[in-house]
Write a protein that binds this DNA or RNA. Structure first.
Lengths: 212, 212
DNA sequence: CAATAATTTGGACAACCGTCAAGACGGCTG
DNA sequence: CAGCCGTCTTGACGGTTGTCCAAATTATTG
């Protein structure tokens, strides 16, 4: 068939194929998004394909049509999660015109994230832990970690810039610090500790001036 | 029976009962220790009672005799893990007579832990993530987290003391920082990144003087 | 030593898991 | 309209899971 096709026909065929691929991939993302709901609710260990299907508009067979197996699905979930997550604070960083403005914008976003997206974030910590056992997750997880580190670094350098300084520590240390604080606050928040969020905000507010 | 017992007989009965309890509890710990082997190898999500039993000297029935269910077993594992973990750096803290000595002792222990006990530590991160989903784990996990924070704080205050200073940040922030760094290094180490351990040591070596 | 209790065994159970495949559906093309 | 193709449904499969239990074994007591 391909040998008989003219140049134009080939181009049409290729276009049709990429269109199909895009549609296929869009569907994958749709399914991954639906899966994230259940994963965020139950966690990796307790989530089965059937449970995912039941909490969504799809049947369990569809997932096997679009994903080669369970790991493939969850890898797709992780990658999709990344896209949503990594730019969370960028608007604050680009619009803030002073240290105070940046601080308050960052803190507000931090509190809102902890309050409204706790389920999605506990899933992130769950999957990052899974990556320590499951090699198939490692590449994506390490990549997301790098992206999150870069995100924190953008905040820190902008904060330093607004004070005509430079960050006093490395990107890795800064990310470790904020990630550790956030993780701890998240756990406390999920355990119905009402001081979790204010404590985190206080801590970050105190910390920001000392890192630059 | 109790009404007819004399005071002495009562005391004997009580003693016998506590002895039985101790024996019972010692067996529980034995089983928990065996379970930790498999948990550290496979992670919470992939570990079944039968797998635990197969990798140990016990049959799967025994676990149900000593634990009411799977969660009960794993809670016991977590609590037992704590006892082993929380005093890891205490010898270094008490024996070090100078900042350098403390630094080198701490770094050496850090590297050894990452190298030799990676499996047990990834399990800790796994179970801490599970606690975000499973309320039954939260109490013990939060308690261990507090103990680890105190452990780090002992190191920091001793380090500060040896330089006639005081730590510049809160216990929570310090623990978040070291925990975050360790977690990241552990993931990289498990992903066969050979720079994971030296990078961690460099980072900590640079960080220690700045926090006091 | 007998009898009573504690411990251990190994199999049975129903429920659930990931995977798969045969067929139904609906739109598009020739 | 007939036939094809991508999409989706449904049910079945072999295997594993947590749990439970009756019987066997061991320890403890009178």
């Amino acid at each position: 068939m391909a040998r008989q096709a003219t140049g134009a026909a080939q181009r049409v065929a290729v276009a049709a194929e990429t269109l199909r691929d895009e549609k296929f991939n869009a569907r994958r993302v749709e399914l991954a998004e639906a899966a994230l709901e259940t994963l965020g609710e139950l966690g990796f260990a307790r989530t089965s394909l059937r449970e995912i299907a039941q909490n969504s508009a799809f049947t369990h067979g569809v997932f096997h049509y679009y994903f080669s197996d369970k790991l493939d699905l969850i890898c797709c979930c992780v990658r999709h999660y990344k896209a949503k997550c990594v730019t969370r604070y960028d608007e604050v960083v680009t619009t803030a015109q002073s240290r105070d403005e940046l601080t308050e914008g960052f803190l507000a976003k931090l509190a809102a994230t902890l309050q409204d997206e706790a389920r999605m974030h506990r899933l992130w910590y769950d999957l990052r832990s899974q990556a320590m056992f499951e090699p198939a997750f490692r590449k994506d997880v390490l990549e997301i970690d790098k992206s999150l580190e870069a995100m924190i670094w953008r905040i820190a350098t902008r904060y330093a810039e607004l004070g005509n300084r430079k960050p006093a520590s490395s990107p890795a240390a800064l990310y470790a610090l904020f990630d550790g604080l956030f993780q701890s606050a998240l756990l406390r928040h999920l355990a119905s500790d009402e001081k979790a969020i204010p404590d985190l905000l206080d801590e970050v507010r105190r910390l920001l001036p000392t890192i630059c």
